[in-house]
Design a protein around this nucleic acid. Structure first.
Lengths: 114, 114
DNA sequence: CATTAACATAACCATATGGTTATTGATTCG
DNA sequence: CGAATCAATAACCATATGGTTATGTTAATG
């Protein structure tokens, strides 16, 4: 599966909320159910369900009903791939931003010499 | 400057749009002005201005008027720090997702042995 | 000086987001 | 069986997002 621009929108969008990042962090320790995931937050259960839908839509988690509870777990494949893509992206930026930084410093140096 | 959760919201939110990611990519090659940044996109100039405001709000770029044009450039400090943070975050996930993956595979193996 | 160019801002619109309460549908448990 | 539990869904609300057109402001230009 290749991460395209649309999915990148969804992944970054999913990560733009602290609650969802927290849920992902919880799931990094292993799978869980909705009640456990909701426990740390002082918001309603439907609100958590919505966040889970967003994470699911981004391909970062999957849900599976077992009895009356819903087991939630990270989708390691897509999640790892998203992480890899983001790392790659961030590294690209770092290099270019370093370059921009050097150019700015060079300019400053030239101005000082005036 | 430390990146807190609120700013992380803004950074990820800023990156959740393809146009803004494209603008950042353009700026990675050096500073630019609004017209140049708008050129690749078939949307109005005010739309681009809005995107720039979002990027600015996330601390990823800065704008400076020089004459009648607005020079736009990456803020290397915060941008690099955000990139570093995201990389760190992604690496943390990768490790944990790898762990989750191994647990899943281990479970599968045990089931096969039944 | 009149016009054009670059950009921002305002006002508006449709849709998305993030939350709520109320309700429903299964399951589990006493 | 009846009650409690887990979670989804629906309906609603306020605000944010992403776009538009229209207008204004400042600077460059003929």
């Amino acid at each position: 599966m290749v991460i395209d621009s649309k999915q990148l929108d969804l992944v970054f969008g999913a990560l733009s909320d602290a609650t969802r990042r927290g849920i992902l962090a919880q799931l990094a320790d292993g799978e869980s159910n909705v009640s456990e995931l909701a426990a740390p937050y002082q918001m309603s259960q439907p609100a958590i369900s919505k966040h889970l839908r967003v994470l699911e839509g981004a391909g970062l988690i999957e849900r599976a009903k077992t009895g009356r509870e819903t087991r939630v777990r990270v989708k390691p494949d897509t999640a790892r791939q998203a992480a890899g893509w983001i790392t790659h992206y961030a590294r690209f930026w770092q290099q270019h931003f370093d370059a921009v930084d050097q150019i700015l410093q060079q300019k400053r140096k030239l101005q000082d010499e005036d």
